[in-house]
Computed example of a mutant assay.
Amino acid sequence: MKIAVYGASGYQGKLVLAEAVRRGLDLVLTGRDAARLRQAAATVGLSGPDIRLAAADDHQALLAAFREADAVVNCAGPFTPTGPAVVRAAIAAGVPYVDTAGEQPYVKAVFDTFGAQAEAAGVSVVPAANDACVPGDLIAALLAERLGPLEEITSIHVITGGGGPSRGSLRSVIESIDIIKAGGLVYDDGDWRVGLPARKTSITLPGGAEAIPVAKFPLTEVVTIPRHVQVRHVEGLAEAALSARLSVPLDPSIIADLPEGPTEQARESQRFTYVLDAVALDGRRARGVVAGPDTYGTTATIAVESARRLVTGPAKPGVLAPAQAYDPAAFLDFLLLHDVRWTIEEDTAGN
């Protein structure tokens, strides 16, 4: 199996390369800078790498690179300005596509723009194959399976440690600053809306003693969950301190002087807890929890596995939410091998 990694020389791209090499997959390294791509290959121990130069606006070069592969993993953020061109090229090449995007407006745009094209071409497209959206979306499917039609699902992210975001993540924040400041899209009564107040202002984590303040945040699973779960309301929340910090505009000129991303040691110290609280139409409640280490490393694992599954067990064509492309419990159980734990408990208080 051969995977084309677009943006292979970036911070997340190199982690995806390392995961693919660890799993014995063949690779096509794609991007704009040959020297950086060769350096990325050397970093992960690839000798004689298959390197294909292609800028995001060079459709023919992208086609040539992607036709040599069985699937595409796009790691080149910010995704809002360049991602659509990469999706378009993958569909034209007839190759399954995933990306590591966390930009909520971009993910919604992929569904809105490419659904019919991907379906007509017989290509499966799964945006936001990252540490949060995939497990969160899969957990939501299992919650709905237990409870039936839902009144609401609230997804909450709590992350500790990690040494700060990568340069690519910070550039994505700049690209998404308006939607971050607005608190993100909320799904409500059949459509996605901006400006609705949060239904929760705090959360108590499993085993926690004190409530943690939370605020609205543009999570990508808010875009994916309503596509396969019968639910009236879906919103995303994050720690209030994180939301406030990322709502402050960044000066793009300072990002280039920052470290490329957190060190391996910092990543090893990071822990994430993603909670999905669901309320059924009849008032019954359940809580799904996903917890693990290293958001960037987990994203690499999920992106590679997402692409691999699209090749070995093809999903239906079109732009798909994770739970539409993969068996939820099977994928979540795969993540147990990578220290990502998941649970579902019914009749919780949903604090």
Rank of each mutant, 00 (worst) to 15 (best):
K2N: 08
I3V: 14
A8F: 06
Y11C: 06
Y11L: 10
K14G: 07
L15V: 01
L17G: 06
V21R: 14
R23N: 02
R23K: 12
V28K: 12
R38P: 00
R38Q: 15
A40N: 08
G45E: 10
G45W: 07
A54Q: 00
F66R: 03
R67M: 04
A69R: 00
A69F: 00
A76N: 12
G77H: 07
T80W: 14
P84K: 11
A85E: 10
V86S: 05
V87T: 12
A89P: 02
A90D: 02
P96W: 06
P96S: 04
Y97P: 04
T100R: 04
A109L: 12
V110G: 05
T113C: 03
F114Q: 11
A116F: 07
A116L: 13
G122N: 03
C133V: 15
C133P: 05
L142A: 12
L150R: 10
L150G: 10
E151L: 07
E151M: 02
I156F: 06
G162H: 05
G164D: 04
R171T: 11
I180W: 01
A182P: 05
L185C: 05
D189E: 15
A198M: 07
T204L: 04
E210A: 15
A211L: 05
A215C: 09
K216N: 11
V223D: 02
Q230I: 14
H233N: 01
S247T: 03
I254D: 10
L258Y: 02
P259A: 13
G261K: 07
T263G: 13
A266F: 10
Q270L: 09
F272K: 04
T273P: 01
A278L: 06
V279P: 02
D282N: 13
R284D: 13
R287I: 08
V289K: 06
P293N: 06
T298K: 08
T299K: 03
I302S: 14
V304I: 11
E305W: 03
S306M: 13
R309I: 11
P314N: 05
V319H: 10
P328H: 08
F334W: 14
L336Q: 15
I344F: 05
D347T: 11
D347P: 01
G350R: 14
